[in-house]
Amino acid sequence: MRRAVFLDRDGVINRAIVRDGKPHPPSSLAELEILPGVYEALQKLHDANYLLIVVTNQPDVSRGAVKREDVELMNAFLASQLPIDGFKTCYHDSSDGCSCRKPLPGALLEAAQEHNIDLSKSFMVGDRWRDVEAGAAAGCKTFFINYRYAEQKPDAPDFIVSSLLEVKKIILGEF
């Protein structure tokens, strides 16, 4: 079985747009900015034989604020620039009741089945409580990148860090 690092998109790979202390996804490719250190961190994890799977909630599609094509364009751009092995994108809103929307673990479980991933030897990296809960529910170790947003914090992440570079150092034992 394989090991994976599951990654939230906005706030982990690319800069989230913070308004009133809360993070929001970019609405277009023009607003998309890959965070510093992300390429290096992902390349090192990929070189260490971790699958890199982006697991992202994009409810603005369901809400009519963003077109699905625009989200897919941003994902395709990230895939062209970074060593990402796959994307699991939930386009639903909370009221839709799907199992793929974090904090539920459906997207991680589906990716694990598709890619023969051992979740107990895998990690979930996110910047919001939903990411940490989904990772824990799937049986992964969890990382919380703490940007001190004005919102609910996760209950018990395994690690609290300040960047994806720090995540890479912990996973690969680079101290």
Rank of each mutant, 00 (worst) to 15 (best):
P83S: 11
S94K: 13
V125Q: 14
R101S: 00
S80C: 00
R68E: 15
D93F: 01
M124L: 12
L108F: 10
L82A: 02
A112M: 03
M124E: 10
H92E: 05
S94T: 06
P59I: 02
G86I: 06
V66F: 00
A112G: 12
Y50F: 15
S122F: 14
L51C: 10
Q58G: 00
P103N: 07
L108K: 02
S80G: 01
S94D: 11
D118Q: 13
N57W: 03
A107N: 02
N75R: 03
V54Q: 07
G106C: 05
S62K: 12
I53F: 14
L109V: 12
A111W: 11
D47P: 05
P59G: 06
F123Q: 08
F77Y: 15
L73F: 04
I53M: 06
L51W: 15
I53R: 04
S80Q: 00
S120A: 14
V54S: 06
A112N: 07
F123T: 13
L119A: 11
C98H: 01
G86H: 06
G86W: 06
S95W: 02
H115V: 01
Q58S: 12
A48Y: 13
L119F: 11
P105D: 10
N57R: 05
E114T: 11
E72Q: 13
S80A: 03
E72A: 02
G86L: 06
K121M: 12
D127C: 09
K88N: 02
H115K: 11
P103M: 10
S120L: 07
Y91N: 01
L109D: 07
E69I: 08
V125F: 14
E114D: 13
M124G: 15
V125S: 14
L108E: 06
D70I: 04
A111P: 02
C98S: 01
P59Q: 04
S122T: 14
L78M: 14
L108M: 13
P59W: 02
L104A: 12
F77P: 05
S94I: 14
Q113Y: 11
Q81H: 00
S122P: 08
I84Q: 06
L82N: 01
G126F: 09
F87G: 04
N49H: 15
S80F: 00
P83G: 05
H92V: 02
M124D: 13
S122Y: 11
C90A: 03
C100E: 02
S62E: 12
M74I: 04
R68L: 13
C100S: 04
D47I: 11
R101T: 06
L82G: 00
V71T: 05
C100F: 08
E114W: 05
H92W: 04
I84V: 12
G106W: 03
R101W: 04
A48G: 15
F87T: 04
R63L: 15
M74R: 08
L73V: 07
A48M: 10
M74Y: 09
I117P: 09
V54R: 07
V61A: 10
D70G: 07
D47V: 11
K88P: 00
I84M: 07
A76P: 00
R101I: 03
E69M: 04
V71Y: 03
L108P: 00
P105G: 10
C100V: 00
F77N: 08
T89R: 03
N116T: 13
C90R: 04
D47H: 14
S122C: 09
N57L: 07
Q58D: 01
I84A: 10
A65Y: 15
N116D: 15
E69R: 10
R101Q: 05
F87W: 10
P59M: 01
A111K: 05
K88Q: 15
P103V: 09
